[in-house]
Amino acid sequence: MTCEQNTTHPILDVRNLRKTYRLGRPSLRGLLRLSSRKEREMVIALDNLSFAVLAGQAVGLVGCNGSGKTTLLKILARITVPTSGEAILRGEVGALLDVAAGFHDELTGRENAELAAAIHGRRLSRADIEAIGAMAQVERFLDTPMRRYSMGMFQRLGIATAARTKAQLLLVDESFSAVDGAFRSFGLRALRRTVDHGGAMLLVSHQLDLIEQNTERCLWLERGRLQLDGSTTEVLAAYREHLRTSEPEDRDGVEEP
């Protein structure tokens, strides 16, 4: 453990985490174990990853496409299982794992917020939901099915709900891609309150300025391995340098400010 000299407990302790995927389609023969599982090509998404996050830390996570950022967050959110290794979490996890934030199209914003809270074992009062709606600036649309929401409204409601559920560890993966600049800083400040109250946040984004403004520490993943772990300024400088010197096809999806 990297934090033994520290008095705070780690909120998250990742030890030798490894995840491999098999390429291709699962087959009936594979299911019945008639064919050897080695027949399908393997991809290593996470390769013996270890790190710890302490209470009060907001940690950025950068890396090119396919570096394992999303896989890591999915394992921590308990959506997918690691192949080996372990991760120890302290407290509840709040996950904003993609643009749609786990909302159901046919349900209204109010019902979706209730559902999201119930998954975390919480019940929202009417006032809670009104507050979430006001924060997400969708108060007029709370009783409208979310299929009629814009992408920005989806994400704002996701962020507002996550800020309200008071999880100890927030996992945020590109959840700000469709919101405007004003809400972006407002929403991030709301999420940061979790961190200030002894929680922690892992923030994944290709918008490097977002990471720069909201985290003090940053991890750079490359091909499932930890390339660099340090202060955000230091890591982002190295990562930007890497992006400048590497081939253009490695750079897709990277948005420089």
Binding site: R78, P82, A87, I88
Partner: peptide, 21 residues
Amino acid sequence: AVRQYSDTRSPSALRITRICP
């Protein structure tokens, strides 16, 4: 594969979750 146990050392007694295969 998640096992939970109450943490006696931590004053805040947060739920501990262990994720492993």
